[in-house]
């Protein structure tokens, strides 16, 4: 029997919930199609590096890929709407934003010959520091490692010094005082064993970035209809699982930070207020740069969460 085999790439490591969820997607497709569609996964950037995955899917080098949307914010601000602090306060709002922006991404990706199948959110983020943050003043002058334009602006608006560093250099930079703060997820904190360098984790939430599971449109169209339906459905269940798994993974990681002696806590009121106002400012900046269609998505999203 002529089974179709696809190659899929992901830039995330094997133990990441994103990759685990993809494996379930692959299993679902395999079972429902009775082995008609086989997908082999290459994770951890072993075949294609993270930021090249979109192009790899587009050009048909591989049939599927887990695309980190945040990498392309320089091309269209829509890619980084979910990077704006407090754009989404929690997973529920992140889900609404995902639903509202999906048609826009469908159209955007279609231009590159990619069909989105599902989305996976990353857990919210927070500050890793060596002392407790009692108030917004404690962030002043902190040497904060940032990784994007939005986090750079956020850091600067909080009065911190933004420091850019490659990911691999973080532990050493922390150990030696090149940086004394880190804004990232609990997952990353566990990955780099943040407890060896910092003692406090202020879980802000605030930023729920997403990855997009995309399939090469030509490869997708070449499938018989029943297989396309199976792939679509598996994509939907991937997204639904993702919201649950992401939250569970986050709780697990925060628990692991605590188990290793870190103090984790919600941000103090004035930090929260400051972050919210910074978020509003950044949303305005975002609006100024975005296309009218993108702004329309933001307006529609805001209307929906008000209800």
């Amino acid at each position: 029997q002529a089974a179709t085999s696809w190659v899929m790439v992901s830039g995330y490591p094997d133990n990441n919930y994103v990759t685990e969820n993809i494996r379930e997607f692959i299993k679902e497709v395999d079972e429902k199609s009775n082995g008609e569609l086989k997908i082999s996964l290459h994770s951890n950037g072993s075949l294609v590096k993270m930021d090249n995955i979109r192009r790899a899917v587009q050009t048909g080098q591989v049939q599927m890929g887990e695309i980190r949307l945040g990498s392309y914010g320089n091309e269209d601000p829509m890619y980084i709407l979910d990077n704006v602090p407090y754009m989404t306060k929690d997973y529920k709002q992140a889900w609404v934003l995902m639903e509202t922006s999906a048609p826009y991404f469908d159209a955007l990706m279609a231009k590159s010959g990619i069909k989105p199948l599902g989305y996976q959110p990353f857990p919210g983020q927070g500050f890793f520091t060596q002392a407790e943050i009692h108030s917004a003043v404690d962030l002043h002058g902190k040497k904060l490692r940032i990784y994007s334009k939005v986090t750079q602006e956020m850091g600067q608006k909080l009065g911190a010094t933004a420091i850019i560093l490659p990911f691999a250099d973080i532990p050493q930079a922390f150990a030696t005082g090149m940086i004394d703060g880190l804004f990232t997820s609990a997952q990353t904190g566990v990955d780099i064993q943040a407890w060896t360098n910092s003692s406090h984790f202020t879980y802000v939430g605030a930023i729920f970035t997403k990855t997009l599971l995309g399939v090469n449109k030509e490869a997708y169209d070449a499938l018989p209809e029943n297989l396309r339906t199976i792939v679509d459905e598996a994509g939907h269940s991937l997204t639904e699982r993702a919201w649950r798994k992401s939250e569970e993974a986050n709780q697990g990681h925060i628990a692991e930070l605590e188990k290793n002696g870190m103090k984790t806590y919600a941000p103090p009121a004035d930090v929260l207020a400051r972050l919210t106002s910074v978020g509003q400012e950044l949303a305005e900046t975002w609006k100024a740069e975005a296309s009218p269609e993108a702004v329309a998505v933001l307006d529609a999203y805001r209307a929906r969460i008000k209800q």
Binding site: R55, Y72, N74, S112, S148, I164
Partner: peptide, 11 residues
């Protein structure tokens, strides 16, 4: 053709 920009701050 597709106007790809680098992901970092320099774009």
């Amino acid at each position: 053709k597709f106007g790809d920009l680098s992901a970092g701050l320099a774009a």
